[in-house]
């Protein structure tokens, strides 16, 4: 799809300003692209390369290492079901199986209407609340087949629109503060000397 919007370019510049080196902003900028389009589009990667003085291949080189970045459209709601050890011990595979039947897709697939993607994922740090899942990185704990169905119904009917933003949006609050140091190394040494 698209390059980053003007508003996102402004945000990108703020983010770049918080790092001593431009390339450090690469992963945050990829998240901005995914937030805009629901996935990381090729044009967006070219745009990010321009913003960071990188070759597009360097952008893709880093992006492709990370599981969360998608390079093709996925469902509006990505449901990640943990099947790691603590969840496996209390029925995660049965839950995944149920999810597949309910949505008529296999793990990794997307429903025809583009609404849901399901994935079998590694531990999501909710092990005491197993079996656990995330929908667009928002948690659901101690999930049963019944509560899974209720979740799908609520997502379909739009009941959770406020709580679960479309795929790609992570934090709804951003850091707004900016760092303004001319030469951090020298200033830091001066702080030490002054004490």
């Amino acid at each position: 799809m698209s390059r980053l919007s003007e508003e996102r370019v402004a945000t990108a510049k703020e983010i770049i300003g918080r790092f001593p080196r431009k390339k450090s902003a690469l992963i945050p900028l990829l998240h901005l692209a995914q937030e805009q389009d629901g996935y990381v589009a090729q044009d967006a990667m070219v745009h990010i390369a321009e913003l960071l003085d990188l070759a597009p291949a360097e952008v893709y080189g880093t992006a492709s290492f990370y599981e969360m970045f998608k390079f093709h459209p996925v469902g509006k709601y990505c449901i990640n079901i943990c099947t790691n050890i603590s969840c496996q011990l209390v029925g995660a595979w049965n839950l995944l199986h149920h999810a597949e039947e309910r949505l008529g897709i296999k793990s990794g697939g997307t429903t025809q209407d583009g609404l849901f993607t399901i994935e079998d994922v590694e531990c999501i740090a909710a092990c005491t609340e197993a079996p656990a899942l995330q929908v667009n990185y928002r948690y659901r704990y101690k999930v049963t087949p019944e509560s899974f169905d209720a979740l799908i119904n609520d997502l379909e009917s739009g009941k959770l629109t406020g709580e679960v933003p479309p795929h790609g949006t992570l934090a709804s609050v951003r850091q707004t503060t900016t760092a303004a140091w001319s030469n951090r190394g020298v200033e830091e040494q001066a702080q030490v000397d002054a004490r």
């Binding site: 992963i27 945050p28 990370y66 599981e67 969360m68």
Partner: peptide, 11 residues
């Protein structure tokens, strides 16, 4: 200064 940032899925 504290710079808040996050990863993208990789243990």
């Amino acid at each position: 200064d504290i710079t808040l940032t996050w990863g993208a899925g990789a243990y």
